[in-house]
């Protein structure tokens, strides 16, 4: 049941990413999923689930396999270490800041990996604009995705 739930939710996030946009930019729903996976299932599962989500995203983006796998794995892992692992005490503000920061890291990893190992996917200024917009669009989710122990 759990696998079905995750398959459905991953598929839905891919689907919605192609349909929703603000100023031509879609929110990075898969980064949110990896963040959620890390917070819900701790480091190991968060990292693995993040990597799987990223690998699937790579496979449908018709680019090389690896950049999203790495970046989403990093999100799944670090959200668990820093938020659930007791490194920081979760507050709504921390949630917003952390999710924006992780989205920026995700975008930077993908941009750099693709530029190094494949074609540069966008100009630097476009990449910066897309990254900042997505970090902004993802930020409110930081209020709602919270660890179990948060008040």
């Amino acid at each position: 049941m759990k696998y079905l739930y995750w398959s459905l939710i991953i598929f839905l996030s891919f689907f919605l990413q192609g349909r929703i946009s603000v100023l031509g930019i879609s929110p990075d729903l898969t980064a949110l999923l990896a963040y959620y996976a890390g917070i819900k299932y701790r480091e190991t599962k968060g990292l693995l689930l993040g990597a799987v989500i990223g690998a699937l995203e790579d496979s449908i983006s018709l680019s090389i396999l690896g950049p999203n796998m790495l970046s989403k794995g990093i999100i799944g892992f670090s959200s668990s270490v820093f938020i659930t692992g007791g490194f920081f005490r979760w507050t709504p503000l921390l949630g917003i800041i952390f999710i924006s920061l992780l989205t920026l890291i995700d975008k930077s990893v993908v941009f750099l990996s693709r530029s190094l190992f494949d074609n540069m996917p966008a100009t630097f200024s476009t990449a910066l604009f897309v990254s900042l917009m997505q970090a902004l669009l993802n930020a409110p989710a930081g209020l709602f995705i919270r660890p179990k122990h948060a008040e």
Binding site: F14, Q17, G18, S26, D28, I60, S61, A122, A127, V130
Partner: peptide, 9 residues
Amino acid sequence: IARGVDYWT
């Protein structure tokens, strides 16, 4: 029917 999934391209 849709925009591509990849944000960069």
